[in-house]
Amino acid sequence: MNKTTNKLALIPVMLCFFAMGFVDLVGIASNYVKEDLQLSDTVANTLPSLVFFWFLIFSVPTGVLMNKIGRKKTVLLSLVVTIISLLLPIFTENFPIMLISFSLLGIGNALMQTSLNPLVSVVTKGHLASTLTFGQFVKAIASFMAPYIAMWGASATIPSFGLEWRVLFPIYMVIGIVASLLLASTPIEEEILANTQKEEVSVTQQFTDCFKLLRKPIVLLSFVGIMCHVGIDVGTNTTAPKILIERLGMSLNEAAFATSLYFIFRTIGCLTGSFFLRVMKTRYFFIISVVMMALSMAGLLVGTSKATLYIAIALVGYGNSNVFSMIFSQALLALPEKKNEVSGLMIMGLFGGTVFPLLMGFASDTIGQAGAVIVMAVGVVYLFTYMKQVNA
Rank of each mutant, 00 (worst) to 15 (best):
G225M: 13
E189F: 05
C228K: 02
I192L: 11
A258D: 09
Y148F: 15
A258S: 14
F276Y: 11
G153Q: 04
A258T: 08
F275E: 00
K212A: 14
Y262W: 12
L193F: 02
L220W: 14
Y172G: 07
Y262V: 07
Q197S: 12
G162E: 02
I192H: 08
W152Q: 13
R247L: 07
V219P: 01
S180L: 13
S260T: 15
F265Y: 12
G269Q: 05
I245P: 01
S260Q: 09
R278Y: 05
E191P: 13
G225W: 10
V167I: 15
L213S: 14
F285T: 04
E200I: 02
P170W: 02
V167G: 04
R166D: 00
I149T: 08
A156Y: 13
I192C: 03
M250C: 06
S180H: 11
C228H: 03
S274M: 12
V219A: 09
P159H: 12
V178M: 06
K212C: 11
I171R: 04
C270W: 09
T239A: 10
D233Y: 14
V178W: 05
E246V: 07
Y284F: 10
L220I: 07
S251K: 11
L252M: 06
L244T: 08
W165E: 03
G162K: 08
R266I: 12
K198Y: 03
E190A: 10
G269D: 10
S155M: 04
V230Q: 02
C270M: 13
L271Y: 15
V230H: 00
V279S: 07
N253Y: 07
S155C: 04
E190T: 07
I158P: 00
G235T: 11
I232G: 02
P187C: 04
F257I: 13
I188Q: 09
K242I: 03
E191I: 03
S222P: 02
F285S: 07
S222V: 05
E246H: 06
V201F: 07
R247V: 10
I158N: 06
F276R: 04
K216P: 00
V234A: 11
A184K: 09
T239F: 09
G176F: 04
V201D: 03
